[in-house]
Simulated assay, not measured.
Amino acid sequence: MAQREGNVGEPRAGNQSQVARGGALFTRLLASTMKICLILVLFLNGTSSVSVMLNHPISLPCGHGEKVVWRKVIPINANVAECQNEKCVVNESFRQRFAVMHEKNYTLFLKSAKYNDQGQYVCSRDGIDKHFKLEVVVPINLTAVESENITLPCYADTQSNVRDVTWLHDEQKILHYSTNGGTNPSNGYKDRVLLTEDGFRDGDISLTIMDVQKTDEGLYRCLVHDETAKGYPHAYMLHVKENPINAGGNQTEGNTNEKRIRIGLIFTLLLIIPFFVFLLCCKKTTTPVAESQSTTDSEPIQESDQKQSTRPFYSGGNTHVLQNLGMISHNDNFNNETTDSIETSM
Rank of each mutant, 00 (worst) to 15 (best):
T252M: 13
Y236K: 07
A113F: 05
T166V: 13
V80A: 03
E227F: 05
S309R: 15
C62D: 05
M34C: 02
P312C: 03
P11V: 04
R21K: 09
V73S: 15
E303W: 13
V138Y: 00
L40I: 12
E291A: 07
E92Y: 14
Y236L: 05
L207H: 05
D157E: 05
T287E: 15
L142G: 07
D157Y: 03
I263K: 07
V193E: 05
M346F: 10
R262F: 08
I301D: 10
I140G: 11
Y189S: 01
D297S: 06
Q251Y: 09
P233Q: 14
Y314M: 13
S315F: 10
T268L: 06
L194W: 03
G248A: 14
G248T: 07
T183V: 07
V289I: 09
I273N: 12
R28C: 10
F43Q: 08
A81L: 07
N15A: 02
N243Y: 11
R28M: 11
C88E: 10
K307E: 05
L152K: 06
S186P: 00
Q306I: 15
T179L: 12
Y177M: 06
N91Y: 11
V90E: 04
I76C: 11
E10Q: 11
S309P: 01
S51K: 13
K114N: 14
Y155W: 14
A290D: 11
I261E: 08
I209W: 10
E242L: 00
I245M: 10
I273P: 02
C123W: 01
M237E: 15
I174Q: 01
T151M: 12
R125S: 12
L279W: 01
N77F: 15
P233E: 08
P244F: 01
N336R: 12
Y177Q: 07
S294H: 07
N187I: 06
E92F: 13
V289T: 06
I266V: 14
L134K: 06
Y121P: 00
G248F: 12
K307V: 02
G188D: 00
C62V: 09
H56R: 15
Y189V: 00
